[in-house]
């Protein structure tokens, strides 16, 4: 036999069983810790990494992008399609196409780091689901206009 005795086992075991019941009884009356997801939502942490989006320039109302193409070059998976044109009478290029293929993106964040103007940031979208591949080819200019 082990060094504990027959009656000691009974006493210690029985006592611990009663303590266990007490623990679960107490949790019964504690507030719930889960959230009813579709009806209640938790606040997302500001560090959340959603897919990237364009930052709105408060002065022009458009994007801050200067069409340097750094993001497209830095992206390890080639997610970006960036095109711009130089309109007559303007010094800078204006952005015409800014597309993100989110199916390839691994959310590494290199594009956000390399952008010289801080024109790209992480979005807070976590609720993304779709039925086709094309639904994840985001047109970020359109998105910026819709959001603004």
């Amino acid at each position: 036999m082990r060094n504990s005795g027959y009656f000691k086992d009974l006493y210690v075991g029985g006592k611990s069983l009663i303590i266990g019941l007490g623990v679960t009884l107490r949790t019964c009356f504690l507030p719930q810790v889960t959230v009813h997801y579709p009806r209640e939502k938790l606040e997302i942490t500001p560090n959340y990494r959603g897919h990237v989006e364009l930052v709105k320039d408060p002065e022009t109302g458009g994007s801050r992008c200067i069409v340097c193409g750094m993001c497209a070059r830095a992206c390890p998976s080639g997610c970006f399609t960036v095109k711009g044109e130089k309109k007559e009478g303007e010094k800078k290029k204006t952005l015409t196409v800014f597309k993100l293929d989110f199916t390839k993106c691994s959310l590494c964040g290199t594009c956000v780091e390399t952008c010289p103007k801080g024109a790209i940031r992480y979005s807070m979208d976590y609720n993304i689901a779709g039925f086709t591949r094309e639904e994840f080819h985001y047109d970020l200019i359109k998105r910026l206009e819709e959001k603004g």
Partner: peptide
């Protein structure tokens, strides 16, 4: 319902 209460979640809703 009781198992939900013990695990501090709402259970059937």
């Amino acid at each position: 319902k009781l198992s939900a209460r013990i695990q501090r979640r709402p259970g059937l809703m």
